[in-house]
Nucleic acid binder design. Structure first.
Lengths: 92, 92
DNA sequence: AAGATAGGCAAGCCGTGACTTGCATGTCAA
DNA sequence: TTGACATGCAAGTCACGGCTTGCCTATCTT
């Protein structure tokens, strides 16, 4: 299981999470298109694919195959309480 | 101003934040010692110093000079609501 | 003033991460 | 079955990040 902190360290990966938060269950091609149109991302399909693999490894994205396409779903559970480790200390 | 996500991506920097959360206002030498003793960090003083500079650049650490020593203080404000960007979308 | 202490600056090494290119695999339509 | 479409795999390039080494500056003590 990959490191969540490292997964969200990359700006492109944060944009991917943004996109999935707005429209869940997108395919790889769909994501490439929308990232290019709406966020000015000029990356290759493979680049996005590798980012998705890393996000999956960090359990931030779940995938589900549907024929020859692969739908990607956002999983926000690893994000909940991520920073509590430091915020809670200040409340005492 | 540096990127907060990138700042907390490094495990050593997260340990530094842990240390400052537990005991605020430590000097560089103090941090080096406690990181070595309590967390098994075997890094040079310069390495820790560079991590601190990056944390300061991300506004996660404030520093204050006291004579020839420099005290470091944790600033958790940039951490508050860091992940709301994705968590809020799911609540609608 | 001189030595010791706390920290800063700069250059260099080295591994890793981001990205591309090229080819292979699998699935759907005609 | 054949061609087009969606994705996966692997190798290679390239730049950046983390770390070290060496030297310099500033402050306190005696």
């Amino acid at each position: 299981m990959g490191d969540v902190f490292q997964a969200i360290a990359d700006p492109t990966r944060r944009l991917i999470l943004d996109e999935l938060a707005e429209r869940d269950g997108q395919s790889l091609f769909e994501l490439c298109g929308r990232l290019a149109m709406r966020h000015g991302v000029g990356l290759t399909r493979q680049a996005i694919s590798q980012h998705l693999a890393l996000l999956e490894d960090a359990d931030l994205v779940h995938s589900q195959r549907a024929g020859r396409t692969k739908l990607h779903h956002l999983n926000t559970r690893p994000l909940r309480g991520l920073t509590d480790r430091w915020l809670h200390e200040r409340e005492e």
